[in-house]
Design a protein around this nucleic acid. Structure first.
Lengths: 138, 138
DNA sequence: ATTTACCCTACTTTATTTATAGACTTTACA
DNA sequence: TGTAAAGTCTATAAATAAAGTAGGGTAAAT
């Protein structure tokens, strides 16, 4: 399951995507819409900004706005950013690889090989679905 | 990511699958093979037994053995048993459904609709891969 | 100058995962 | 029939991660 952090990130991105006509959107507006703690959401939006997905403007009239096109915000990107690996085991993660200590020879591990296939099929879905797909269905 | 519990379950099932010629296999043999705590593995094997995947025999000469055919032990079954939901959000889980409190109307939630598609594609993979696929690659 | 809102750090609480302990039951076999 | 071997069960502790709080600092608009 995704963490609440990631779920909230998707909600926030959806809200920002729906309000692209506005220059900026306030944290507190998003927080109020979904009943999320203002401070908690702040951290999430910051991470999305650092990843180049959102932009922000300080001061009066400031707020957050979407920088990327919704179709360019893949689900995989958001999940990796806030939740970490998509792979089901550390030994098959592309971005967060770690060997399994119980595994003598990864090349002979059937579980490893099957999980690589699972990972590839999951990635195929998560890289090809994007914020645009979410917005289309709202 | 899968919990260690689930990963160990897959290791244990693989070991039992590879030793189907023996009547029974000792917990401690499996634990030693993968460097897992005997007591921790005990709980895992018990759950697999209660789920009808393994059988066991007490006393001297006892141990665990695979009841099901490897092809009938889908990855999804093991994951659900030990880790819970496969879906990425509680509101799209088939077996562990819970509504999202921030969601007024699930039917109008784009995230919900996209995550249903993701769930279905993940399930398609995890229900069609089984212990047999792991054993084939050992 | 003051309001408004983003930025940053640290901490606390809660939940989950991982692991351990110890007593109990069943079985094989001498 | 006794004893050692092996799984069963319940409870609890330790470690880690997730979720949420607090409070002040910094930049920009009017």
């Amino acid at each position: 399951m995704l963490s609440k952090k990631t779920k909230y990130a998707f909600h926030a991105l959806t809200y920002l995507g729906k309000n692209r006509d506005q220059k900026t959107v306030l944290i507190q507006d998003i927080a109020a819409e979904y009943g999320i703690s203002h401070k908690f959401l702040e951290n999430i939006l910051l991470e999305l900004k650092k990843a180049g997905i959102l932009g922000s403007k300080k001061g009066k009239g400031g707020g957050y706005y979407l920088i990327k096109e919704p179709k360019d915000v893949a689900l995989s990107k958001v999940i990796r950013l806030l939740d970490g690996p998509i792979a089901l085991l550390p030994c098959v993660s592309l971005n967060y690889y770690e060997p399994c200590i119980e595994c003598q020879d990864e090349g002979k591990c059937g579980l490893n090989k099957v999980m690589i296939q699972v990972r590839d099929e999951m990635l195929n879905v998560l890289e090809n679905k994007s914020l645009a797909d979410i917005l289309d269905k709202e």
